[in-house]
């Protein structure tokens, strides 16, 4: 407690709440308001409508919701497997090679997404691997961009796992694979779920690489939102942004309710 006087504390609280409201409440509130605005010429919209949501949940926009959800699930699932595999394989290594490989798996998160997209275009626009214009290239772009985050989350979970659990399991006669399946993986399940959730959220909002590589038939929501706002349909863009945020939240809340019996003490 830094401020002791009653008025001082009240002033600080008022300041803090105002700051948070303007910085983080206002943007979300405004998007929400815009998504139901019929017309907005003054300080506040002049009338409300649900028309933009109707637009957002049909035709191209609905298709984009499907595309984004699919891309998010597939890319996150693949990234989860590969990230968990990498984190497990790195764990027993000696200090120096471990740190080196750790950096290697983290680097994709440091490279700008547009450059990742450009690289995929350059690499896969010619035979033998002609992926340009396919759905697969979008999935690959998303996988590359989120793989570092899944790897990071899982290896953080493994690092926090007390070594005794696995050692006791081993002393009781559990072979490596049995130990992995019955002890290690169940105990890091919360981290696996967190890793999947973060990857999924990042994939849902990905724009830089997608805008470089997407084929006409596989348009994700962020690309669609940009297209809408670029042609001046900003209320439709706001409504689609709300659909994006809400659908992401539903999936994340759903994931957070997966029962895990491994509650760390």
């Amino acid at each position: 407690m830094l401020v002791w006087s009653r008025t001082g504390r009240a002033l600080t609280w008022a300041f803090a709440l105002l700051l948070f409201a303007v910085l983080y409440g206002l943007p979300i509130g405004v998007i929400a308001l815009a998504s139901i605005s019929g017309q907005w010429n003054g300080v506040l919209p002049s009338h409300m409508t649900l028309e933009h949501y109707v637009n957002a949940l049909q035709g191209d926009s609905l298709e984009q919701l499907h595309v984004s959800l699919w891309t998010g699930f597939v890319a996150s699932a693949v990234a989860l497997v590969s990230g968990t595999w990498a984190a497990l394989a790195l764990r027993p290594l000696a200090r120096l090679p471990k740190r080196l490989l750790d950096v290697v798996f983290f680097i994709p998160s440091a490279v700008p997404s547009v450059s990742v997209g450009l690289g995929l275009l350059v690499a896969f626009s010619r035979p033998p691997l002609l992926l340009n214009g396919t759905t697969l290239i979008v999935l690959i772009a998303h996988f590359v961009l989120i793989s570092a985050f899944t790897y990071g989350n899982v290896s953080a979970g493994l690092a926090r796992l007390p070594i005794e659990f696995e050692q006791v399991a081993e002393s009781l006669g559990a072979r490596p694979f049995y130990r992995l399946r019955r002890v290690t993986l169940p105990l890091v399940t919360p981290y696996l779920i967190a890793a999947f959730s973060l990857s999924f959220a990042l994939s849902m909002g990905e724009l830089g690489a997608t805008v470089m590589v997407y084929p006409p038939g596989w348009v994700t929501m962020p690309v669609g939102i940009f297209a809408l706002s670029d042609r001046g349909a900003i209320f439709d863009a706001a409504a689609l942004t709300m659909v994006l945020a809400i659908s992401t939240s539903i999936v994340l809340v759903g994931l957070s309710h997966i029962p895990t019996r491994a509650s760390p003490r």
Binding site: E164, F165, L172, R175, P186, L187
Partner: peptide
Amino acid sequence: VAPHARNIGMVVQNYALFPHM
């Protein structure tokens, strides 16, 4: 010999009971 093949019982300070079982 690998730990899993030694046929020993081990009890550690913080018990290390598997929390999910």
